[in-house]
């Protein structure tokens, strides 16, 4: 069977202004649908990406709304990969914790959603500036990730 998507990439660069979140959500949701994820899973992926970008705005850029965020969607036959690049304060992966759901308090739910929804979460701090966050969601009809996958978080 011919592949629908070899390695198509959709990239958008936006200012770190929360008003653009709705635009990115729309792009992510429709791309997931295009890849034949169910509407439910597409909504979940959209939420995970929204939360990741919210964290960039709040923590990497300290709510400075004029910095750059680049979101790349990599369309693969078996998965959707989302790369979120920022140039702000580096993320220390060891400090990123989702909160205990029994501890009811504002905050901390974003990381919980990201890890709950996505199959692979990887914070790449190797760039000289900022962080590259890689999120992967596999299509269930393509099976789980290759050996060694699913452990990025």
């Amino acid at each position: 069977m011919n592949s629908l998507f070899q390695d198509d990439v959709i990239t958008i660069s936006v200012a770190s202004n929360p008003r653009f979140l709705t635009l990115i959500r729309c792009m992510v949701f429709n791309t997931a649908l295009l890849l034949k994820f169910s509407e439910k899973i597409s909504r979940e992926i959209m939420l995970a990406v929204d939360e990741a970008i919210t964290n960039v705005i709040k923590h990497s850029y300290n709510q400075c709304y004029e910095k750059e965020i680049i979101v790349s969607l990599h369309l693969k036959n078996d998965r959707l990969e989302i790369h979120i690049r920022d140039y702000g304060k580096k993320t220390d992966p060891s400090c990123i914790k989702s909160r205990d759901l029994n501890d009811i308090k504002p905050g901390g739910l974003g990381v919980f959603f990201i890890r709950k929804i996505m199959d692979h979460v990887e914070y790449d701090t190797s760039p000289e500036e900022g962080t590259l966050l890689k999120l992967i969601k596999y299509k269930t009809d393509c099976g789980p990730s290759p050996a060694g996958g699913h452990n990025g978080d």
Partner: peptide, 13 residues
């Protein structure tokens, strides 16, 4: 139509 963790945090507050 949509709520994320920022909205949920506001409700918890």
């Amino acid at each position: 139509k949509y709520i994320d963790s920022s909205g949920l945090a506001t409700l918890i507050e």
